[in-house]
């Protein structure tokens, strides 16, 4: 099944084809010495969909993203990104794959020595031949998208926690990747600030049609993202509204426990689960 999906991703090849698998994890395992981090993990992310990975600390959530990004190599199994098998690629070859991936790290991981503008436009300034005027325009566009246009010349140290996360989102989306990865994007933020970050994630998914994988243990944020949708109104403004049942199904939850997948399904199925561990986790 997984192999078929990977093949479809290769054959499909068109970035905006709906329901095309953009990420495939096929029986991926990883251990550090005797400690098993991921054990036979398989899942698929379809184009334009959201996968929310839940789990307690140390369950292997962030490692999953690092493997996907090629920052770590699995011990066994295969990983496909946009139809390309990445677990066997050398670091230089991964750079091409990463051009289609954006990552929002825990705490933002903004470059301290660069301004917000330089952080957001980093990939475009440093790794592409795009004219500087075009880069500046794109930076202003994405900073406007996350509502931080007036902060362009500030240093990251002069920003609040929530603003740093939103700058990190702007940096991840600046080069228009097809897939965005969020590693605990709202952890440590107060509920109001976390909701503004959640809204940005929803807007990116529904307005920019970016496929995303979210790693979190913040249940409130996970369910908010899964059960809300962004809609553009007649005057061009974007509103966040409760999602209908069909839209809800586009966000899938995946629960990890000690490196194993113990649940995969939508928000409603997760809520109705009778599994004791899941019930405890959700309570």
């Amino acid at each position: 099944m997984i192999q078929e999906l990977a093949d479809r991703a290769v054959v499909g090849g068109v970035a905006d084809e709906p329901d095309r698998p953009v990420v495939v994890f096929d029986h991926v395992s990883l251990a550090f010495d005797d400690k098993v981090i991921l054990k036979d993990v398989s899942f698929t992310l379809l184009s334009g969909r959201t996968k929310i990975i839940l789990g307690a600390s140390g369950a292997g959530k962030s490692i999953t993203l690092k493997i996907l990004l090629g920052l770590l190599k699995p011990d066994s199994g295969a990983v496909w990104v946009n139809g390309q098998r990445t677990d066997e690629l050398a670091e230089e070859d991964m750079m091409e794959v990463r051009a289609n991936l954006g990552m929002v790290f825990q705490e933002g991981a903004l470059f301290d020595s660069l301004t917000v503008r330089e952080n957001v436009g980093y990939r475009l300034y440093e790794e592409t031949d795009m004219p500087l005027d075009d880069v500046d325009r794109r930076v202003e566009e994405v900073l406007g998208f996350v509502g931080l246009a007036e902060f362009a010349e500030r240093m990251p140290s002069a920003l609040s926690g929530g603003q740093r996360r939103r700058v990190a989102i702007a940096r991840a989306m600046a080069a228009k990747p097809q897939i965005l990865l969020y590693d605990e994007a709202t952890t440590g933020l107060d509920p109001m600030t976390a909701m503004t970050v959640d809204d940005e994630i929803i807007k990116l998914r529904d307005i920019e049609e970016v496929s995303s994988i979210l790693v979190t243990h913040q249940l409130r944020d996970a369910f908010y993202i899964a059960t809300h949708a962004a809609v553009r109104q007649g005057n061009g403004d974007v509103r966040i509204v409760p999602a209908d049942r069909e839209k809800e199904r586009e966000s899938e939850f995946l629960m990890l426990r000690d490196g194993l997948i113990i649940f995969e399904g939508d928000a409603e199925t997760l809520r109705r689960s009778k599994d004791e561990y899941l019930k405890t986790f959700l309570s």
Binding site: M95, G102, E107, A109, F111, D112, Y122, R123, E126
Partner: peptide, 22 residues
Amino acid sequence: GSMVVTDQISALRALGTDPIRK
């Protein structure tokens, strides 16, 4: 060291930059 522990090195790699060269 600070860049490593705050994930800035990983961020560099994620953004397509080789930290050794940069």
